[in-house]
Simulated scan of single mutants.
Amino acid sequence: MNETASKNAEEFGFHEGDVIQEWLWDDDVSDSIRDRIMTLTGEDLVDEDYGAAVNGVIIWWRDGDDEDALADTIVDAYAVLGGDGPLWVLTPKPGRPGAASSITVQSAATTAGMNAATPLTVSDDWNGIHLTPYGKGR
């Protein structure tokens, strides 16, 4: 694992007891990332159909998915995010199937009214891009 990613998922800004919602789950997601988040929070991840506010969000997004759909997903995910909880878009790293350009993610984030941070390596195969609403800093 790259030095920039912890073994305990602290880089996401999630805490014990947090309810984390994941969007666009598919068979290619990283079970190690999911497991690290669940170990850190002590809670199972919930899906898009979860009916209450959450403390954090991860969105699995791959190249070939529609950029406008990503912007819409970011807006929908932020709407159920309680307070100022962390929101992350996870994309396959360059050279992996489905690798997405960080510029594409940044463009979708801008459309959704969010700032996108520089990608962070969160596992051997996935990068994470932390999003914050305009005016909330990076």
Rank of each mutant, 00 (worst) to 15 (best):
M1Q: 14
A5L: 07
S6I: 05
A9D: 01
A9F: 04
G13E: 06
Q21A: 06
E22I: 01
L24S: 11
D26V: 03
D28Y: 05
D31G: 14
I33L: 07
I37K: 02
G42N: 10
E43I: 05
D44V: 10
D47Q: 13
D47I: 01
E48P: 00
Y50R: 06
A52V: 05
A53C: 13
V54Q: 11
V57E: 00
I58Q: 04
G64M: 10
D65C: 05
D66P: 00
E67K: 12
T73R: 00
Y78E: 09
V80Q: 02
G82D: 11
G83P: 02
P86R: 14
W88T: 09
V89N: 07
T91I: 12
P94A: 11
R96P: 00
G98H: 02
G98T: 09
A99C: 10
A99W: 08
A100P: 00
S101Y: 13
S102R: 08
T104G: 09
V105D: 04
Q106D: 13
S107D: 09
A108D: 03
T110K: 08
T111E: 05
P119R: 09
N127R: 07
G128N: 06
L131M: 08
T132A: 14
Y134V: 11
K136F: 15
R138Q: 13
R138N: 11
